[in-house]
Design a protein around this nucleic acid. Structure first.
Lengths: 217, 217
DNA sequence: GTCTATATCCAGATAGAC
DNA sequence: GTCTATCTGGATATAGAC
C-alpha cells in the first residue's frame, strides 16, 4: 500500500489538523515565544514527546499553522470578491458574518489575531516572516477593490479605497483583540455602528446575518 | 543626606525611566516572553547584569512598565473628560491627536499595544494581571460617558454608549497594531474616515490637530 | 556604578521502553 | 503509536572584579 494515499495516511493528517487547531488557540493568546510545546500537548491531551512525531519542531508546527491561516483568510477574501452581489452587500456581509461569528466561536478571532500578532512580532521564526511578507497584503487589496467598486456605484462613501480597506481590517483586528481578551464575556457591537464608517447613512442596512463557520473566513 | 530625596536619587530615577522606555518598545513588539533581558540591555547600551541593579527581575521591570503605562493612559482619559469642550470636540481631538501622533512617534501606539497585548496574553506575571483587572475598564468608561453626553446634545450619533466606547478603543488598538506592524511605512488614515462612525455627517469636522506628545496619552 | 563570569533553571528536542 | 526519561542549549539571575 502506498503511504501517500492510504486510509491510515488520512487519519494521520486529521490528527495533525487537530493538533494545529489546538495550538492555534494557544499561540493566538500567548504568542509564539510564551507558548510551550507542553502547553499544546496538555491541551490536546497527549504527551509532549508525541508532537515531535507529527512536527519537526515548534518552529515547524508554527510555520504550518501560519501558512494554513493565511490560506484560509485569502480564500475567504477571494470568495467574497467573487460573490454575485453589489459591493456594498459584500462589505456588509463580511462585517456581519465576522461580528456574528465572534460571539459564537473563537475560531475566526483567533485566526485574525494570530496573523496580527505574528505580523508585528519580531520574535518569530524567519520562515514565518517570509510567509507574512508574501501573503499579508492580499486581504487588504481584495477589500480595497470592493470599496472602489462600491464608490463607483455610489453605495459606499468617498475616500481613498486603500485607507478604507485599512480601516476595515484594523476594525476587525481591534474587535478580534477585544474578543479574545474578553473571552465569553464579549458582546459584539451592533453592526450598524460599524458600517457607518463605510456606508451612506441614508441606506439602512438590512439584518444580513448568515449562519456560517467563521465570518469572512 | 537622605537617600530618598537626594540629587543623586533623581539621577537614578531618570535612569530607571530611560530603561523603562527602552523596554517598552521591545515588549510591545515582541511580547513579554520573547523579550530577553539582554535585548533590553543591548537597546540601552549597557550590560545585562546592570539591569538587575535597577530592577529586581524581568517580572518586576515589566510590572512597573505596565503600571506606568496604565497610569498615563488613565491620566489622559481623565484629562480629556475634564476639558472645557463640547463632547464631540473631545472625541474629535482624541482621535485626531492619536492618529497624528502615530505618524510621528511610536510612543503612543507602543503604549496602547503593550496594554492590548498584555490584556489578552496569559503568559504574563500574576501581579501584572491584577493591575489589568483593576485598571483596564477606566478608559472605556471615560469615553462612554463622553459619548453619552454627546448624544444628549445631538452631536454624536445614536447607539449604546458602551458599544461606541468599545468601537472607539478597538479602532485605536487596531490602528496601533497596524502602526507597529508597518513601522515607518505607516500612513495614518484620514481623520474624517474614522469619525464617520461617531458623528452625524452634516457637521463637517474642522481640522483640529494640536501639536502635542502622544495623542490622548 | 558598571562589566564579566558563573550558577541555576527551564523548555526544546531526542532516545529508548512498552 | 504513545509515553517516560534524558540530553542539551539558552535565558534569568547572582557573584565577584575593576
Amino acid at each position: 500500500m502506498r503511504p501517500g494515499s492510504s486510509h491510515f495516511e488520512k487519519q494521520r493528517l486529521d490528527r495533525r489538523e487537530e493538533f494545529l487547531t489546538c495550538s492555534g488557540k494557544i499561540f493566538a493568546s500567548k504568542g509564539y515565544a510564551a507558548t510551550k510545546i507542553s502547553d499544546i500537548a496538555a491541551a490536546a491531551g497527549v504527551s509532549q514527546g508525541l508532537l515531535y512525531r507529527y512536527f519537526t519542531s515548534k518552529e515547524g508546527l508554527f510555520t504550518e499553522l501560519i501558512r494554513g491561516s493565511f490560506e484560509k483568510l485569502n480564500q475567504a477574501a477571494d470568495g467574497l470578491e467573487k460573490l454575485h452581489l453589489p459591493p456594498k452587500e459584500k462589505i456588509l456581509r463580511a462585517l456581519g458574518e465576522t461580528i456574528a461569528s465572534m460571539e459564537t466561536s473563537e475560531l475566526f478571532p483567533n485566526r485574525v489575531l494570530l496573523i496580527a500578532q505574528t505580523t508585528l512580532s519580531e520574535g518569530i521564526p524567519e520562515e514565518t516572516k517570509a510567509i507574512i511578507q508574501a501573503e499579508s497584503r492580499k486581504p487588504y487589496e481584495a477589500i480595497a477593490r470592493i470599496m472602489e467598486a462600491g464608490q463607483k456605484d455610489g453605495s459606499i462613501l468617498a475616500g481613498d479605497p486603500t485607507e478604507m480597506a485599512t480601516l476595515f481590517w484594523t476594525t476587525i483586528k481591534g474587535l478580534a483583540l477585544h474578543r479574545v481578551a474578553q473571552g465569553t464575556a464579549f458582546k459584539a457591537p451592533d453592526l450598524k455602528l460599524v458600517t457607518r464608517m463605510f456606508f451612506a447613512p441614508s441606506s439602512d442596512p438590512p439584518a444580513t446575518r448568515l449562519p456560517q463557520e467563521g465570518g469572512v473566513a
